[in-house]
Every structure is written in C-alpha cells, then in structure tokens.
Simulated assay, not measured.
Amino acid sequence: MNTITHTEESSVLIVDEMHLSILAMLEAVGLKPDYQPKIKRQEIIDIIANYEGLIIRSKTKVDEELLLPATRLKFIGRAGAGLDLIDETIVNKKNIKIFAANEGNRVAVAEHIIGMLLCLMNNIMIADTQVRAGKWLREENRGYELLGKTVGLIGYGNNGMETAKRLAAFGCKVLAYDKYKDNFSDAYAQQASMEEIYAYADILSLHIPLTDETFQLVNQEFLGRFAKNIYFINASRGEIASLEAIWQGLQSGKILGACLDVLENEKLNQLTESQKNVFEQLIKSEKVVLTPHIAGWTHESYVRINEVLVAKIQQMFS
C-alpha cells in the first residue's frame, strides 16, 4: 500500500468494536489508530479535536454536538452499510468525507436472506423443533420451492445486486426497483416500476437505507397494493417497516411469512407497550423467522469491512 501523508500524531479514533485487523491495515497506510471501543459519547466530544479520522459502527450518533469541536476531522468511516447515524448535512458543511463499507458485507447479507427464506418456505425451523420433540410430520411440513417465484427487490445497490445473483441461481425472476438508478437491468434482475412489483411479486425484499423518505414505508396501505399474498423480507433497517402492519398482514394472509433480521426497536428490554404487544405475537408465530441484526455479521465480512474502509481512506488521501 502507498503511505498516506499526514501530520497528526494520533490520526484515527475508533469508537466501536472492530476486527483488530483494522489496526495493522491503518498503520500500513501511514495512519495511527487509537482503538477505544468502550469510549463514552462525552469522552469522544472531549478528545475529537485531536483526530483526522473517526470510525464508527452502530453505537455512536454523529451529530452537530459531536462534530462541533472536531476541527481537524477529515473523514468518518462507517464500518458497515447505512449512514442513518450520521447527520450528513452537518458533515457536508464541515467538508468532512464519509465512507461506508457497503461492499464489505454484501455477500453475508445476501446469503443470510437466502438462508432465512429457505427456512421459512420449507418449514425447516418448525420441523427441526418437532423432530427434536419426537414428532415425525412429513405431510404437515411440505414446503414451497423458490424456482419460478417472482421476487421484488426495493433498492438495487450492493446488497440488492448480490441478493439478486443468488435468487437468480435458484431460478427466480427478479424485479428490481431503485428510485435513484436507471437502465440497470442485468443478467440477474430486470429493472421494474413499483407498479410491476405490486402486480407480480411473490416475495418482497428491502435493500434501502433508512431516511426520512423510507421511514415506515411498509405500512398497511403499502402491503394492500400487492396483487398476490407475499413473503416479506427485511434485512435493511427495522424502522422502514411497521411491525404492526407486518403482524396485521400475517393475520389477514396478505403476508404468507416474514423474514425479519431487523426490528423497529432492537432494544428488546426497552420496547414500548404497543411494540411489546406486537413483538410477543410475532415470536409466537410459526410464519416468522427472526434473527438479531446479523445478516451482515459473518467472520469474513468482519475483516472485509476493514479492507473496504481502509482502501477508501487511502484513496482519499492519495
């Protein structure tokens, strides 16, 4: 790697748990990492003026209060996908670059989605529990194949494209809608309007960031537009889909089953009364597969995210 020219003694403050390979990678390009994964918010504010770079994962909200004293900061690295924790308006005003490692976990997310979907459509979790309990129920667990199903993807960035590759390999027809891209049809997915997805999708999967525009996008009105009853997948951000709407969809049959890697509120000990009521219903349902926001959380992606971030930081300095 080429060495980065910089002047500060301590260059990069890392405030979240990271694979420790990040330290050697940053040093190899001439940056001095300061790894403080247990640091508190006020402590960051107190020392941020000493650093050229800040690397976060999902613990730290980067807003005006935190950035006000950051007079030397040149870049913020997000170890993962999605920038909803970062106030991009303030960051842009201060001419600070933002890097996200979207490419780093796209394979992990895509594989996880396929795994959840296969579990759901083939009753794998239900059958496993039954066999362990001494029940051998074959006909009751007859499943459905992915072959021939039409999958609608909302968002066709890194995760959307990687997921489309795997779905296409199963013989699915993949329709993709992306408000911010055009002419992106490829060997794995066909560009489509939302109207086409509403009309033809058997399965819906979200691959979009959380923004003011996408907050609570999936509600009862949205789900009511689908011509077919659908399987629903959310491995993006929980706040994009109303859990109440998902539960209502499961009860009515509009949602045949749901794969949820993310929830509106992932702090399960801090649920509101209404969130708790819905969550208690979801965890009882055999039509729901739940995982704790781990779709991009493989051993391989843990290292790959570091590689992507450091490559982007190096490119900025060079």
Rank of each mutant, 00 (worst) to 15 (best):
I154E: 12
Q314V: 07
K59Y: 05
L85V: 00
Y156Q: 13
T272V: 12
N265A: 03
S193C: 12
E145G: 14
K287N: 13
K181H: 07
A101L: 04
N269V: 12
L204W: 09
V109C: 14
I126C: 14
R72W: 11
K97D: 12
N95A: 11
E27K: 13
S236K: 15
A241H: 04
S252M: 09
A110S: 01
I45D: 04
G53S: 06
I55D: 10
Q251K: 11
K135G: 01
S252L: 05
R132H: 15
M161H: 09
P69K: 07
A28I: 11
G30K: 15
T5P: 11
V308A: 05
R138L: 13
V262Q: 15
I47N: 11
E280T: 02
W247K: 10
E239R: 14
G160C: 01
L23S: 04
E140R: 08
N50H: 15
L206N: 09
S205T: 03
R41V: 00
S205D: 12
G53Y: 11
V288L: 03
E286I: 06
M1L: 01
L175I: 09
D182M: 06
H293G: 02
T291F: 13
L210N: 06
I76S: 08
D186Q: 12
K228T: 14
F99Q: 10
L223D: 05
I45N: 07
T7K: 14
V109P: 10
E9H: 06
F317R: 06
I230M: 02
K312R: 10
